[in-house]
Computed example of a mutant assay.
Amino acid sequence: MLHEVSFPSYNKRDEVQGWIYVPAARPKGIVQIIHGFGEHSRRYLHMISKFMDAGFIVAADDHVGHGKTAMVSGVWGDWGDAGFHTMMEDEHTLKELVCEKYPNLPYFLFGHSMGSFIARDYAAKYGDELAGVTICGTTGSFRGAAETALLLKKAMDDGLGTDSNPEFTGALMGWMCERCDDVTIGNEWICSDPYVQRDHAEDPFDAFTRPTSNRSMYDFTQMMLSIEGTQWAEKVPTSLAFYNIGGDQDPVGEYGKGIYEVSNWLCETGHEVTTRVYSGYRHEIHNYSDIKDEVEDGILQFMLAAVPS
């Protein structure tokens, strides 16, 4: 069964477009998939099917400025003027809609890349509503975020918030193909599979080729800076378990260093965290044909361990 839903965004401008996928079985729990920067939730269809086959209801939406939400609003690459918590609050609204239809089930988050930042922000405010969180392709201290934030703030103060300046995107993310050979598209850092690269670049629901406004890039930096250090982890309930996964050739996680940074912040504040780093793989470990089933099985094992028998 599939429910298509829409709801007003926290930014008071957009109608967020979402989906609730329901297996033809008694559900064991619910998992909400939170997609990353510049993509959309249907890039996770393999994962959605795998989770449904295991008995989980799956919820997902397309963020403001992304995917079908942007197609409906006509606004790509701009997240509104309500600040960097916008997407996190939208994910909480979706969670409330899902729980109205399917109450009293263990609720999990899976967030990839920016989606993992959103999930970490969510856990700091609403973590007591969750049974577990998987963060995939996450960041520790993101290289250049603080410095680029200062440049973006000046641009906003100069009245250029709704403009899009490529030099800011370059300053924040232009280095991410530094370990990739034969760079022709610019997204090679996500996965070494050229078919995944082309699928991502040519997908009409992806925002990869569309500019992002200065104020949204600023919000992106603030999102990353807000989830740094033990000061973030201390806001998360210690009863909430994390599964932290990524590839050791992922620049977002500083090639493994940032992944362990996050796990150490959680461990230092008394949290249960399981960490798994896949050697030789880039950002989208769930899109490598040779390991995606293994990646998804690991997430399922983490969630099933928290589901009452």
Rank of each mutant, 00 (worst) to 15 (best):
Y278I: 01
S263L: 00
S263F: 02
K257L: 12
P251W: 07
E254C: 15
L266H: 06
P251M: 09
Y255G: 12
E284Y: 05
Q249P: 11
L266F: 08
Y278V: 02
Y281M: 04
S279R: 12
S263I: 00
V277H: 02
V262W: 00
W265D: 03
H283E: 05
Y260W: 07
Y255S: 11
Y255C: 11
K257T: 10
W265Q: 00
E272C: 11
E272K: 15
T269S: 08
G256Y: 05
R282E: 10
E268M: 10
Y278A: 04
G258L: 05
Y281C: 06
D248T: 14
E261F: 00
G280K: 08
Y281F: 07
T269Y: 03
K257S: 07
G253V: 06
W265N: 01
G280A: 06
D250H: 06
P251I: 08
I259S: 03
I259G: 00
R282I: 07
V252H: 11
T269I: 07
D248K: 11
H283T: 05
Y260M: 10
Y260K: 07
H283Q: 05
E284Q: 10
V252C: 14
H283L: 04
G258E: 06
T269C: 13
I259Q: 06
L266Q: 07
H283M: 02
H283F: 03
Y278W: 06
Y278M: 03
E268N: 13
E268A: 14
V273A: 13
G258V: 04
T269M: 12
E254H: 15
V262H: 01
L266T: 09
W265R: 01
